[in-house]
Write a protein that binds this DNA or RNA. Structure first.
Length: 262
DNA sequence: CGATCTGTTAGTAG
DNA sequence: ACTACTAACAGATC
């Protein structure tokens, strides 16, 4: 699930249930997703602290602690927050849980692709990671700067977190569809005007998704989302939906509708 | 049983 | 340096 809009939704959830709350205890059931410390030291360092603020950058969420350090949450493919007050509500794949006076915030993650890091400095991490500008905040100028000199496919570009942080596989397909560009088009072959359309669509899609809270059923009917199935007849007779692999990811598009630049 | 999956990274090759 | 491709990570689901 977690692309930028989903992570933004997690942030709102996290802020509601976790900020300014004393961390009474952290219980770690599986420390595989803790990438730079053991479960024991993670629990030790957090005990007695509280989260003061949170920040999102792309698909990363940072919980800033009162001591200036931070916990980084990256949700991988299946990470999720679940807050509960009754033990019976404990999620099935709770990898660790924060105990607060008001209840428990679990990190639920069936596949363990999520990564949780204890950071002493958030900016250091972003720099080391070479994360590009957040896709929701990036300006048009920065967008064109990120494109400069690149020859990769449009899809590869949108997914490249070092160029642009936050867009994942589903939203990348949605952007290509709405901008009417074939996802395999090399970015240097796409007209400047079309790139501007791509930028505008990206913004509109992400903003709308954040506003709706990612909950698939509530997305607009004219979005591509529901047609990500091979061979079906695309929206409003836009031709068959093609499934292929671009930038190493499963990609769906409407060949008739989306122009291939080359 | 085999294929697939909303993410990232390391390695390899051109 | 840039780009493209692969495998690996882990487990549920179809």
């Amino acid at each position: 699930m977690p692309e930028l809009p989903e992570v933004e939704t997690f942030k709102v959830y996290f802020d509601t249930v976790a900020l300014q709350q004393s961390i009474l205890k952290v219980e770690v059931h599986d420390d595989k997703i803790l990438r730079n410390c053991s479960g024991e030291s993670f629990a030790d360092r957090l005990k007695g602290q509280f989260f003061q603020q949170s920040f999102r950058h792309g698909k990363y969420l940072f919980g800033k602690l009162q001591n200036g350090h931070a916990v980084l949450f990256h949700f991988g493919m299946t990470g999720d927050f679940v807050f509960y007050t009754d033990a019976s509500e404990k999620p099935r794949y709770e990898r660790f849980v924060f105990r607060f006076p008001t209840g428990s915030l679990a990190f639920d993650c069936p596949r363990k692709f999520a990564r949780i890091l204890y950071l002493e400095d958030i900016d250091d991490f972003i720099q080391k990671q070479q994360l590009g500008p957040d896709a929701l905040l990036i300006s048009e100028n920065e967008f064109f700067e990120a494109l400069a000199g690149k020859t990769m496919s449009l899809k590869g570009f949108l997914l490249n977190q070092k160029a642009l942080a936050g867009v994942g596989n589903l939203y990348a397909d949605e952007i290509c569809y709405q901008a009417r560009v074939h996802p395999a088009s090399p970015v240097d072959k796409i007209s400047r005007q079309k790139l501007k359309t791509i930028f505008d669509k990206m913004k509109a899609i992400l903003q709308k998704a954040v506003q709706l809270k990612p909950y698939y059923k509530s997305y607009p009917d004219d979005w591509f989302w529901q047609w990500r199935k091979e061979g079906v007849s695309g929206p409003n007779g836009k031709g068959k939906v093609v499934k292929t692999k671009i930038a190493a990811r499963t990609t769906y598009y409407c060949a008739q509708w989306q122009k291939k630049y080359s």
